[in-house]
Simulated assay, not measured.
Amino acid sequence: MPEAISSAAPLLEVEQLWVRYGGISAVKGISFQVRQGELVCLIGCNGAGKTTSLKALAGLLPCEARLARLNGSIDLTELAAHQRIAHGMALVPEGRGVFARLTIEENLDMGAYSQKDRAQIALDKERVYATFPRLKERRQQAAGTMSGGEQQMLAMGRALMGRPRLLLLDEPSMGLSPIMVDKIFEVVKTLHEAGTTILLVEQNANMALQIADRGYVLDSGEMLLSGPAQDLITDPRVREAYLGDGGV
């Protein structure tokens, strides 16, 4: 990890995060942080609490936390979901969540609803189109008629239109062909290298750890392991449970 990132103040700090569904605790007091400029991944099996954690951070699920702070001073527990977007947090949800009846261009416009500078919005849209040329080719096409991979591109582009300081990515590879998975991960890597701070939830632990700076391993709602991504890749427990017999 570059020294500038490793010494940076946390952009996101979470301590003792709890999420409950009725009497069942889905996330059990986990703590983690994401520094400015980092790509941090949360990995684990189905039901580990990864998606639940992101939804709680985005304000889509009620939660309790001793600390959930953005940018050093913003208490996330006091903000509604739309206010978190205004403060620079954007979620690309599991399953994409595009507006199926709207065109690609209209979906991107929805992502920029909190922005006021029309000239800047136009520039941001061109950057999204440069990142995902297929979206520009089909910008007047209804989003619901696109393939799963194209919808994933659109969901990511829509989030980027909000100019997020912290991008939350929830299972971006889910349900995609191997070729499209490679494309999506290449885009995530490029965004990170360009300076976007990313918290990535991903079941494909191998690919996530390959591009991440650091990682956290969740198991049944609890934090099992954490550390530099390259250390986790070589950890026998991670290799056996999440990377398969062949490892990396």
Rank of each mutant, 00 (worst) to 15 (best):
P2R: 15
I5W: 08
I5A: 10
A8Y: 00
A9K: 09
A9G: 01
L11A: 11
L12E: 10
L12M: 12
E13Y: 02
V14I: 12
V19D: 03
V19M: 01
Y21I: 10
S25L: 08
I30G: 05
I30L: 04
Q33E: 15
Q33H: 15
R35V: 07
Q36D: 11
Q36R: 14
G37W: 03
E38Q: 14
V40F: 05
G44E: 00
G49R: 07
T52C: 03
S53K: 04
L54D: 03
K55N: 08
A58I: 00
G59R: 01
L60I: 00
C63R: 06
E64I: 09
E64T: 11
L67Y: 06
L76C: 02
L76H: 01
E78S: 07
E78A: 11
L79P: 01
A80H: 09
A80D: 13
H82Y: 12
H87E: 10
A90F: 02
A90T: 10
V92N: 03
E94L: 14
G95S: 06
V98S: 04
F99T: 05
A100Q: 14
A100W: 10
R101Y: 03
I104G: 06
I104F: 03
I104H: 01
E105S: 05
E105L: 05
N107V: 04
S114N: 12
Q115E: 07
R118D: 08
D124C: 08
R127V: 04
V128H: 10
A130K: 08
A130F: 05
P133D: 04
P133L: 09
P133A: 06
Q141H: 13
G144M: 12
G144A: 09
G148F: 08
E150G: 13
M153W: 06
L154I: 02
M161H: 02
M161F: 02
P164R: 00
P164V: 07
P172I: 07
S173Q: 08
G175A: 09
G175T: 03
L176H: 15
S177C: 15
P178K: 00
I179M: 13
I179C: 08
M180I: 15
T190E: 12
L191K: 06
A194C: 10
T197M: 00
L199F: 02
Q203T: 13
N204W: 04
N206D: 01
Q210A: 11
A212Q: 01
R214C: 08
G215Q: 06
L218H: 14
L218A: 11
L218R: 15
S220E: 11
E222Q: 13
M223G: 06
L224K: 15
S226H: 09
D235C: 02
R237H: 14
V238S: 15
R239N: 04
L243V: 02
G247I: 08
